[in-house]
Design a protein around this nucleic acid. Structure first.
Length: 190
DNA sequence: AATCTCAGCAACCGCGGGAAC
DNA sequence: CGTTCCCGCGGTTGCTGAGAT
């Protein structure tokens, strides 16, 4: 019943991606487009599970990714969307072209949380932390406000897995797979 | 100069929804 | 109609490098 036999998890690599793996994945998707992640690794000659390939492509290799510091506008938009949607990172990412849910999630946890706390706002409820005045006064002691200048350190190397960003290039749609792309966008409230 | 601490980020894990048999 | 499987999402982990001591 059901479908054909499923993904064998043995004989798959884990951890950081190598340049060669990246290039194989890019090359395959350039030709065949996104989608059918389960069969992709085998077809592309990768010893990875489809899930891992999808993640790598979506979060790092996609040509339309921005890969840079978030602007103040983006910050504010993320904060606003988070107050409306909660931790629906994929929905929030849908409103920020070139940004991924994983990137936004990481950015939220490392930067925006602190930003809100320094304003005296609860990052979860988006309400003032306590009735008492002053942001710093109400900040929990264990939560540090930007301890460092937080320079825009974008480690393009991670375990030697980084690869030069591929030049932007339209990718053909899912080749025969059922799922559609993420909905184009949510109507933003006034 | 060496060591320690912590921020930042890529990648993994587990689960739920929904489509394919 | 029930079962199986794929896809995508959110949460978490672990590694790396920069700053502090």
């Amino acid at each position: 019943m059901g479908r054909s036999p499923c993904c064998e998890k043995e004989h798959t690599n884990k951890g950081a991606w190598t340049k060669e793996e990246d290039q194989r994945l890019i090359a395959y998707i350039r030709v065949n487009g996104e989608g059918c992640w389960r069969s992709l690794p085998k077809a592309a000659g990768l010893l990875r599970c489809g899930k891992s390939c999808r993640l790598r492509w979506m979060n790092y290799l996609r040509p339309d990714l921005k890969r840079g510091n978030f602007t103040d506008d983006e910050d504010e938009l993320i904060i606003r969307l988070h107050s409306l949607l909660g931790n629906k990172w994929s929905l929030i990412a849908g409103q920020l072209p070139g940004r991924t849910d994983n990137e936004i999630k990481n950015y939220w946890n490392t930067h925006i949380k602190r930003k809100l706390l320094s304003r005296g706002m609860d990052p979860h409820t988006h309400r003032p932390l306590t009735p008492v005045d002053g942001a710093a006064a109400s900040r929990p002691a264990h939560i540090a406000v930007p301890a460092r200048a937080a320079p825009p350190t974008r480690r393009d190397e991670h375990g030697g897995a980084a690869v030069p960003r591929p030049e932007p290039r339209p990718v053909s749609g899912p080749a025969g797979c059922r799922h559609a792309d993420l909905a184009p966008g949510l109507p933003l409230p006034p």
